[in-house]
């Protein structure tokens, strides 16, 4: 099989940039100053108040972000999918143009809006809207909304219009047609939309760091904090690595759940 040759660069790439770093994370988690030890690993794992609670908060925020994105994106995608292709293309462009701007730049703009612009507007410059769950959620939804719209729009616009006509023909009103035909058929789009929003939302660092303003902390900031210990010298690699391992496992589990739903769909099963 000569074709295998073409896979070699990819395999090398995978080993260099995925397997080796993972190995280092595990290595640093159980290695303090060149000595093998499980103490840091255990203390991090068992620190419920500092670590698990923040992780739980992060999961809740990620779930909320995903849910809000889904609720906002579905109607938008649905309306877009029923529009003329040219009009839909233009409107979805409006949603995507902000994406061409740098992510950090966008987040800093929101910081400026929440910290200075809105308080100035309502005439109370002493008030700050940053550092709250609401503000972090707002910016997360703003950042990730396009990633929910796109897969939904793709799936919805591929649904054969004659299926909707068939449903209407068989006696389903528009609402029933939506719940019995459109929604079940759009499940693959929902699943990939959720994956594309939930995973980056749970691991996000920039948004809670900037918008959280040091008051509202999420798991991403926690890892950052561990590596940059307050002294500014060398961070605690063992703690940071252990935290990272926990996050990787979380993401893995959520991906597996999503894959399960997707598989179920492919074999033709009913999700709802």
């Amino acid at each position: 099989m000569k074709r295998k040759v073409f896979a070699y660069p990819y395999i090398v790439w995978m080993i260099l940039f995925i397997v080796v770093p993972m190995f280092f994370i595990f290595y640093y988690a159980v290695n303090v100053g060149g000595q093998f030890t499980l103490t840091k690993f255990w203390s991090t794992l068992t620190d419920v108040k500092n670590n698990w609670l923040v992780l739980w908060n992060s999961i809740v925020i990620a779930l909320k972000t995903t849910a809000i994105c889904l609720i906002i994106a579905y109607p938008i995608a649905y309306i877009l999918s029923n529009m003329k292709k040219s009009v839909a293309g233009f409107i979805s462009l409006l949603f995507f143009v902000p994406m061409w701007m740098n992510f950090i730049l966008r987040t800093y703009s929101w910081y400026a809006i929440l910290e200075y612009f809105i308080p100035g507007l309502i005439g109370k410059p002493e008030v700050s809207f940053t550092g709250t769950e609401f503000s972090v959620l707002l910016v997360l939804v703003y950042d990730f909304l396009p990633f929910m719209i796109l897969p939904l729009y793709n799936t919805l616009s591929k649904i054969d219009k004659s299926l909707i006509e068939a449903s209407r023909d068989l006696g389903a009103n528009p609402v029933k047609t939506f719940f019995r035909v459109v929604l079940p058929l759009s499940v693959p789009g929902i699943v990939s939309g959720i994956t594309m929003v939930f995973v980056p939302a749970i691991t996000t660092f920039t948004v809670p760091f900037i918008i959280g303003n040091g008051v509202f902390t999420l798991y991403g900031s926690k890892i950052d904090e561990a590596f940059h210990q307050a002294t500014g010298v060398v961070g605690d690699y063992a703690v940071g690595s252990t935290l990272s391992i926990i996050l990787v496992i979380c993401v893995l589990i959520s991906t597996l759940i999503m894959n399960y739903f997707d598989k179920d769909k492919e074999s033709g099963g009913q999700v709802l």
Partner: peptide, 9 residues
């Protein structure tokens, strides 16, 4: 319908 339009789900 011309292309049957059966529900794939």
């Amino acid at each position: 319908f011309q292309k049957y339009a059966l529900f794939p789900h």
